[in-house]
Amino acid sequence: MPDPIHQFEIKRLVPLELFGLDATFTNSALFMVLAVVLIAGFLIFSMQGRSLVPTRLQSLSEMLYEFVANMVRDTMGHGHDEHGHGHGYMKFFPLVFTIFIFILTLNMLGMIPGFFTSTSHLAVTASLALLVFVTVLIVGFAKNGVGFLKLFVPSGVPIYVLPLVVAIEIISFLSRPVSHSVRLFANMLAGHITLKVFAGFIIMLLGAGGAYGVLSILPLTMATALTALEFLVAFLQAYVFAMLTCMYLNDALHPGH
């Protein structure tokens, strides 16, 4: 049976050492570079004409922009005017857009047979989640100063349970980057392993020959359905990651709930 884990193997392509650190260019890095090139190429190329009546490609990038802009507005813009004037939450649009489209492209690239899925590695998703976590900390303290710590002190709690509640709130806050990164990583990993296992069943049944060959239609059906599901998951996980980024940034802007 083909090894379902084999697809996640990191291969060293160009050995590289920077400042005593192992910065080898791997297949994971290659696909991240590919994703960045694809995104940048698509957005620059599609916006070339910049016509009032958009071409197909231009309206595709405009739809992408609108989709993320609406997400940012919905999660961060309660009670503020449409463009976020005088409030500045749209300042975080570039970050959210970059995160969303980067993860979406990596997930979708991973759906192409034979391609590597960078987001199926915890190192990649954890780096992205930590990027968001550190941004939230910096923005939170820069905007609110010590007032950011109000995030851990809910109002209306009796003083004798306050230490317990604050401890729970801090653990809850620290658990964010964990769940943020593990969710994306686990979804991609599990999905790709399941696909591989069912595809492996087809080969095994066909290899067994005779009546078993007819049975191979069952895992084939399953693998087909799972492929469709994986495309949905690939999109949803990118969406959820970006939406949570908005929510966490919103907490940084308004720590008082």
Binding site: I171, S175, V178, V182, R183, L232, L236, Q237, V240
Partner: peptide
Amino acid sequence: GGRGMSYGFKIGSEFVGAILVGAAI
């Protein structure tokens, strides 16, 4: 329905994540 699935994953992983972080601390 699609959102519901993503919400399920979100809430489930947040529950497990908090336990892991607590135990690790």
